[in-house]
Design a protein around this nucleic acid. Structure first.
Length: 516
RNA sequence: GGCAGCGUAGCUCAGUGGUAGAGCAGGGGAAUCAUAAUCCCUUGGUCGGGGGUUCAAAUCCCUCCGCUGCUACCA
């Protein structure tokens, strides 16, 4: 689709040493909804997710498991590929950092940075704990009377120096700040932007970008003793996937990315290091990095020790796929932290989905089925009330689009549900069950207006709830060709006489199973 | 410690100078098309405490209390 508007968005690549949980599911879900929305809105979308498979931890886990790192990572990365099916993600690509295309891309990026004078060989020195496999800052350590340095974890540290390549991050402070100033929505939400800018203003040190202490990673070109620092490796996946180092084709078409979606824990890497790497290599930085919040579970932090980590499969099997997708995006203003509780999910499923939206669809389709010969009824002249509701429904796209472009998924749903509420009030005010006896043609008009309103809603809820929305659209006899945003409004209006199937409930109430 | 932000109805939050708001929960009523769903009305707040500016402050300023985030090489 040359010449059409493109939209390239990415999730982080997930570290294979983790087991997928609600946090991973949430990040990719947000991207999936945006990707689906943009496709329906006529964009040529590229939606990327994948796994980060290098690093010392993976090397060690493989050792513990008694297999080669590649065998290990083939196995565990499958968990994340499975998540795609579980959550019904529509990604166009799934990248793995162990793929040849990525190795070539990262090494090309390295050479370019080196040629530009952005990388130099120095030595990395610091207090290192063998037990923790981590360096600590001087101020983090406590000193024993004997002069030993003890890490916060209680591990003893020793002074270590090793050769390392460095990226001249210190030289990028002013250019980064200038970039943030010129692109006020590069980092979202604004509170996070302030934090990043405060961090950069406080001064940047050169960044160690290679290690000699492990082997499982991408070798530095021309110096095999060094393995590239994981973040340089990981971040480059975003350009690998569009064909870098080939800068024609997909790269020219999709880069710079429109959006990198990230958890707030990895914001700095995306908002500071990544644009510096790219600009250092003479490449364009992405247009936006959005840092979303964390979920707590029933008011508690998720942790392996508490044993309250929720597997996405469990959510889907308990509450339903679209119900889970809806809850995650409706419950919490996107960008904020939120709490996942069973009571809150129940309230959302039964209140918003079963009672408000599902029941609206069911009551309207049932009346049409029973009183209009199971066909789209023939409308008569529209009253003011009819026009008011139809205009509200027909006017949804611009508001929904604006909220989507701000990644305000909760507001997208607020906007849609305002019309759900309008429609339910309209049913009660118009009382078609009374019109059935007093004024059947008027009843037909009312039911037509309602069916047409539901059509708008179902088209617009597709990104968040693809399966349920498809069921509703099927019940309105709208085939796949009539479900894009081009069909919104009068252009795709329902045609009187169209036969409709027998309605079936789309959002069942969640009934608590009695404890055995 | 430094920087930033927050504290508004039982709960989650909107409102950033001009007569206190929404959703949910609670109470009452209407309707009966529908998944006993829906609709209407309604209870409820000295807007964290104190001080100040102003004709007027949840909104601006000061101070105190409480909470949160950031303060670089673990993904």
């Amino acid at each position: 689709m040359a010449g059409s508007k493109t939209y390239y968005l990415t999730t982080p690549i997930y570290y294979v040493n983790d087991v997928p949980h609600i946090g991973h599911a949430y990040t990719t879900l947000a991207c999936d909804v945006l990707a689906r929305f943009k496709r329906l809105d006529g964009f040529d979308v590229k939606f990327l997710t994948g796994t980060d498979e290098h690093g010392q931890k993976v090397e060690k886990s493989a050792q513990v498991a008694g297999v080669a790192p590649q065998v290990f990572t083939d196995r565990v990365s499958q968990n994340f590929r499975d998540l795609v099916g579980v959550m019904n993600y529509s990604n166009d690509d799934f990248i793995r950092t162990t793929e040849p295309r990525h190795v070539a891309s990262v090494q090309a990026l390295w050479k370019r940075l080196q040629d530009a004078g952005e990388i130099y060989l120095g030595s990395y020195a610091g207090w290192y704990s063998v037990r923790d496999e981590a360096f600590y800052g001087e101020d983090e350590l406590t000193k024993t009377p004997a002069g030993k340095r003890i890490a916060p974890t209680g591990a003893e540290c020793e002074w270590v120096e090793e050769p390392s390549y460095f990226f001249r991050l210190s030289a990028w402070q002013d250019r980064l700040l200038e970039f943030y100033e010129k692109n006020p929505s590069f980092i979202m939400p604004p509170s996070k932007r302030n934090e990043v800018m405060a961090f950069v203003k406080s001064g940047l040190k050169d960044l160690s970008v290679s290690r000699t202490t492990f082997k499982w990673g991408i070798p530095v070109p021309g110096d095999d003793a060094h393995i590239m620092y994981v973040w340089l490796d990981a971040l480059a996946n975003y350009i690998t996937a569009v064909g870098y180092p080939d800068e024609s084709g997909a790269y020219a078409q999709y880069w710079p990315a429109d959006l990198h979606m990230v958890g707030k824990d990895i914001l700095r890497f995306h908002a500071v290091y990544w644009p510096a790497f790219l600009m250092g290599a003479g490449l364009q930085p992405p247009k936006r990095v959005f840092a979303h919040g964390w979920w707590t579970i029933e008011g508690q932090k998720m942790s392996k020790t508490l044993g309250n980590v929720i597997a996405p499969e469990k959510l889907v099997s308990t509450y339903g796929l679209d119900q889970t997708r809806y809850f995650l995006l409706r419950e919490v203003p996107f960008g904020n932290d939120g709490d996942f509780s069973h009571a809150a999910v129940m309230q959302r499923i039964n209140g918003n989905l079963a009672n408000d939206y599902g029941n609206l669809v069911q009551r309207v389709l049932s009346m049409i089925n029973k009183n209009c010969g199971a066909q789209i009824p023939q409308p008569g002249p529209f009253t003011e009330a009819d026009k008011t509701l139809l205009e509200a429904a027909y006017g949804l796209l611009p508001s929904v689009r604006a909220e989507m472009d701000a990644q305000a998924f909760h507001k997208v749903l607020d906007v849609l549900w305002a019309v759900v509420g309008d429609a339910n009030r309209y049913v009660d005010e118009q009382a078609p069950w009374t019109l059935k006896k007093t004024d059947p043609p008027r009843m037909n008009t009312v039911l037509y207006v309602l069916a047409e309103t539901i059509r708008q809603l179902a088209i617009l809820t597709q990104p968040v709830m693809p399966d349920a929305s498809a069921k509703i659209l099927e019940q309105l006899s709208q085939d796949a060709g009539a479900r894009g945003f081009a069909a919104l409004g009068a252009a795709g209006a329902l045609v009187a006489g169209t036969p409709l199937p027998t309605p079936q409930g789309v959002f069942p109430r969640f009934v608590e199973e009695p404890k055995a």
